[in-house]
């Protein structure tokens, strides 16, 4: 039996969020026999470039809800109209990115439709036509696999948890959904954004091909500077353990793990990182993990693909020489 999966295509600043594409990638590869549909909200006509991109992200069908009231994100308004769409098309699986907006939106939709929701998942699969969603819990010390007695099976997915793939061309059908917008302006009047200051965004590094992370074994902030330089030479992105972030050696934006980011790199190199569970859950979807540690018995040495017993700083220096 085919499962119908509906994915929220989140658009910010006229760009499709990576996590939406990551979800579609995972679903099309891992859910047997599923049709993947997307939906999005906009306030005006979509730009041509966005239209053509939407046809290239592996969707069978996309539902568009277009209304001027959808200009700025308002969780009450968005959850109301999205709930209408879901009641109307009744998918078996509903997925959204656990972004700032997604984490606020999903529980309101779930409460509105009185359905179960599993938040911030790092793995999803279908068994007997049912969504099984896995997420870290208890501060990353445990994993829980959760299903729901209600339909659709509903989950939000951690950005970076899945690898983004290239999609084959698809003949994506485009459908405009007419939602009921009664009372929407009264809702909008209850909250008013007085000012917004966007912060400069480092481009999303979590799904770059090669990530080189440093931990306490790097010993100093200066060595992190050397790590950044090496990354530039290789075309890799730097990352850090929480312990290194807490000491101020690296910025919190590049922390990997349970309370940091999840990565899905092709190659993750961990330099001087012990391999605490909270760190490892963030790299469970990396294709290859290479650890460099002076301690042969450090936990990470038995849960990497390649474990090299060596001094991290010396390795950085040697690599820098080789790639210069």
């Amino acid at each position: 039996m085919t499962t119908n999966t509906l994915v929220y295509i989140e658009i910010n600043n006229n760009k499709i969020e990576n996590v939406s594409k990551e979800i579609i990638s995972h679903v099309s590869k891992n859910f047997d026999d599923t049709s993947v549909c997307g939906f999005l909200t906009v306030n005006t006509t979509l730009s041509e470039s966005l239209f053509s991109e939407l046809r290239q992200i592996g969707l069978d069908k996309i539902y568009i809800i277009q209304h001027e009231a959808l200009k700025d994100f308002n969780v009450e308004v968005f959850s109301g109209v999205i709930s209408q769409l879901i009641s109307n098309i009744q998918p078996q699986v509903l997925l959204m990115g656990a972004t700032v907006n997604g984490r606020e939106l999903a529980p309101r939709i779930a409460a509105n439709l009185q359905i179960g929701l599993t938040a911030d998942c790092t793995d999803l699969k279908i068994e007997d036509n049912m969504l099984l969603a896995t997420r870290p819990t208890y501060g990353g010390q445990m994993m829980a696999t959760i299903y729901s007695k209600t339909l659709p099976g509903f989950a939000t997915v951690r950005p970076g948890a899945f690898l983004k793939r290239n999609f084959p061309e698809k003949n994506t059908e485009i459908v405009y959904f007419e939602a009921n917008f009664d009372g929407v302006y009264e809702i909008l009047n209850k909250t008013e954004i007085l000012s917004t200051e966007y912060k400069p965004q480092t481009d999303d590094w979590t799904n770059s091909d090669i990530i080189i992370a440093g931990g306490l074994g790097l010993k100093s902030k200066e060595n992190f500077e050397k790590l950044y330089k090496l990354c530039d030479l290789i075309g890799a992105k730097p990352a850090a353990s929480r312990a290194a972030v807490e000491l101020g050696w690296a910025p919190s934006e590049i922390q990997v793990g349970q309370t940091g980011r999840s990565v899905s790199a092709k190659l993750y190199i961990a330099l001087g990182i012990s391999g605490a569970l909270q760190h490892m859950t963030g790299i469970s979807n990396a294709q290859k993990v290479l650890a460099v540690n002076t301690d042969k018995n450090a936990p990470i040495m038995s849960c990497s693909d390649v474990a090299i017993v060596a001094d991290a700083t010396a390795v950085i220096e040697a690599l820098t020489n080789k790639f210069s």
Partner: peptide, 8 residues
């Protein structure tokens, strides 16, 4: 509605 299938 949500039930833990397994925790590990």
């Amino acid at each position: 509605p949500t039930q833990v299938k397994k925790a590990y």
